[in-house]
Every structure is written in C-alpha cells, then in structure tokens.
Amino acid sequence: MVIVFLVLLIILSAYTLVTRDLLYGVIALSAISLLSALLFYLLHAPDVAITEAAVGAGVSTVIFVWAIRATERFSPQDRPEKRNGSKGGKQ
C-alpha cells in the first residue's frame, strides 16, 4: 500500500512540473498533500498527518488558487504570440 502511494506521489509530482496550466498543477499539489497525509497515517504518525492534511490540502491550496486568480493562469513562456490577447480560459 505504501509503495503504491509513493509511486503515485512521484507521478503526480512529475505532472505538476510538466503541466502548462498552473491551476491543474496546484490541484495536483493538493492531491500530493492528501496522499502524503494518508502515508503519514499509515506509518503511524497521526499528528503529522493532521498537520499535512490541514496545511497542504487545505490552506496552502486555497492560497495558491487565490494567487493564480490574481495573476495569470498559464505559464507565460508558452504563449509568446498571445501576449496581448485574452488571457486564456479562466473560470
């Protein structure tokens, strides 16, 4: 079970680094936090699991989403030709 979660963690981290849509990346980060919290619980560390779940899957994701909302949703180096067009599909 632990091995499965660890492999999933690696796959999700690679996805976060590679994706162009920042919002999807942040949701992947939130999934990583959730899996980490489960892992910590399985490894008999409940205090750390509560902290990781509350901070990673909760507050941290919300702050990132607000930050993306205030700036840009897509990684800028990918759209050199659309600089002054509409800023991608948000909401």
């Binding site: 409940p46 205090d47 699991a49 509560i50 902290t51 509350a54 901070v55 909760g58 507050v59 919300v62």
Partner: peptide, 17 residues
C-alpha cells in the same frame, strides 16, 4: 490525542475562511 497548537490553529484559520 493527536493534535496540538499548529494543527488546531490551521483548522481555526480554515474556519475563519
């Protein structure tokens, strides 16, 4: 029980949000 200052504080912050 598992918990404490940090954990509780973050949950309180979520409650405020």
């Amino acid at each position: 029980s598992p918990g404490g200052g940090f954990q509780g504080g973050v949950v309180v912050a979520s409650g405020i949000v």
